[in-house]
């Protein structure tokens, strides 16, 4: 009996408060929303595409310059490595010396070799260029993420 009264009270409450939120006819509302959603999607696509094209136009010369510089550096390093013939020397040493000493010599050679590369000084010389190149690559990545 109590449950029945509670149920009827619940029903009466729903009827009373339901009147405060009467049903609203669509009347083209959902169509308007859909048009706006589609327009928004297109706007976003156009904006992202324009930003990507603009970014590429700005970034390409810098990235090209950066790649050219890196390839020159690599060619120079390869030439230096060839003249010093470190690997060949290590190979012949390995056949004569125990493994531990060979490893020690290899490690020293590697240190000398990396000292020749001196990435810190190279970076300091081309800091702006590296920054620009990295930013360009990051912007492409960000564009991709935003698009998703």
């Amino acid at each position: 009996m109590s449950n029945e009264i509670e149920g009827q009270e619940e029903f009466a409450m729903q009827a009373m408060f339901g009147r405060e939120i009467p049903p609203v006819a669509d009347d083209g509302f959902s169509k308007t929303v859909l048009v706006r959603v589609r327009r928004k999607i297109w706007k976003r696509r156009v904006t992202l595409l324009s930003a990507t094209v603009l970014g590429l136009v700005i970034a390409l010369p810098t990235v090209g310059q950066l790649l050219l510089m890196l390839s020159n550096e690599l060619v120079a390093l390869a030439a230096r490595a060839e003249t010093s013939d470190t690997l060949g020397q290590l190979g012949s040493l390995a056949s004569l010396l125990p493994l531990r000493e060979t490893a020690q010599i290899a490690s020293d050679e590697l240190k000398n070799f990396s000292a020749q590369i001196s990435p810190v000084s190279w970076y300091q010389q081309n800091r702006l260029l590296v920054g620009a190149g990295l930013l360009s690559l990051a912007s492409l990545f960000m564009t991709h993420i935003l698009d998703r």
């Binding site: 609203v24 006819a25 859909l34 589609r38």
Partner: peptide
């Protein structure tokens, strides 16, 4: 967007009613 349109059609009445309130 069609799926979203279906969702809008389903819920627009309550959302608009709530905002009207």
């Amino acid at each position: 967007t069609q799926a979203f349109d279906e969702l809008v059609q389903r819920h627009q009445s309550r959302v608009r009613g709530w905002l009207r309130h």
